[in-house]
Lab assay of single mutants.
Amino acid sequence: SIEEEIKKAEEAKEKGKTFIHGDFVATTEELLDELLKRLRKKL
């Protein structure tokens, strides 16, 4: 679910890890923020 993806992305951000969502690879905090923004729009 979208909620689960958001939670996983937030955890990755806290730990400074890379998060992959489909073909979107978030390797930096900026990219994770962008991904979180996109996911929240889908809610």
Rank of each mutant, 00 (worst) to 15 (best):
residue 1 S to I: 07
residue 1 S to V: 07
residue 1 S to P: 07
residue 1 S to G: 10
residue 1 S to N: 09
residue 1 S to T: 12
residue 1 S to M: 10
residue 2 I to E: 02
residue 2 I to Y: 04
residue 2 I to P: 03
residue 2 I to F: 06
residue 3 E to M: 13
residue 3 E to A: 13
residue 3 E to R: 12
residue 4 E to D: 12
residue 4 E to Q: 09
residue 4 E to K: 07
residue 4 E to W: 11
residue 5 E to P: 04
residue 5 E to R: 05
residue 5 E to V: 15
residue 5 E to K: 05
residue 5 E to W: 15
residue 5 E to F: 14
residue 5 E to I: 15
residue 5 E to D: 12
residue 6 I to K: 02
residue 7 K to Q: 11
residue 8 K to W: 09
residue 8 K to A: 11
residue 8 K to N: 08
residue 9 A to L: 13
residue 9 A to N: 03
residue 10 E to H: 05
residue 10 E to K: 08
residue 10 E to Q: 10
residue 10 E to L: 14
residue 10 E to T: 09
residue 11 E to F: 05
residue 12 A to H: 05
residue 13 K to F: 05
residue 13 K to P: 02
residue 13 K to N: 02
residue 14 E to V: 10
residue 14 E to Y: 11
residue 14 E to I: 12
residue 14 E to G: 09
residue 15 K to V: 04
residue 15 K to R: 08
residue 15 K to L: 13
residue 15 K to H: 13
residue 15 K to G: 09
residue 16 G to W: 11
residue 16 G to P: 00
residue 17 K to R: 10
residue 17 K to Q: 14
residue 17 K to F: 15
residue 18 T to N: 07
residue 18 T to H: 11
residue 18 T to W: 14
residue 20 I to Q: 08
residue 20 I to L: 05
residue 20 I to E: 05
residue 20 I to H: 05
residue 20 I to R: 07
residue 20 I to C: 15
residue 20 I to S: 07
residue 21 H to E: 04
residue 21 H to P: 04
residue 21 H to L: 12
residue 22 G to Y: 11
residue 22 G to W: 13
residue 22 G to Q: 07
residue 23 D to S: 12
residue 23 D to E: 09
residue 24 F to P: 02
residue 24 F to L: 07
residue 24 F to W: 09
residue 24 F to N: 01
residue 25 V to W: 12
residue 25 V to E: 08
residue 25 V to R: 03
residue 25 V to Q: 11
residue 26 A to C: 09
residue 26 A to G: 02
residue 27 T to G: 09
residue 27 T to M: 11
residue 27 T to K: 09
residue 27 T to W: 14
residue 27 T to P: 01
residue 28 T to K: 01
residue 28 T to Q: 02
residue 28 T to A: 06
residue 28 T to E: 03
residue 29 E to F: 14
residue 30 E to K: 11
residue 31 L to D: 14
residue 31 L to P: 01
residue 31 L to W: 06
residue 31 L to I: 07
residue 31 L to Q: 15
residue 32 L to Q: 00
residue 32 L to M: 04
residue 32 L to N: 00
residue 32 L to Y: 10
residue 33 D to W: 10
residue 33 D to C: 12
residue 33 D to N: 11
residue 33 D to S: 09
residue 34 E to Y: 06
residue 34 E to H: 06
residue 35 L to N: 00
residue 35 L to C: 07
residue 36 L to H: 01
residue 37 K to Y: 09
residue 37 K to S: 10
residue 38 R to T: 13
residue 38 R to L: 15
residue 38 R to D: 10
residue 38 R to Q: 14
residue 39 L to Q: 00
residue 39 L to F: 02
residue 40 R to H: 13
residue 40 R to V: 10
residue 40 R to N: 11
residue 40 R to E: 06
residue 41 K to W: 08
residue 41 K to P: 04
residue 42 K to G: 04
residue 42 K to R: 08
residue 43 L to W: 06
residue 43 L to P: 00
residue 43 L to T: 01
residue 43 L to G: 01
residue 43 L to Y: 07
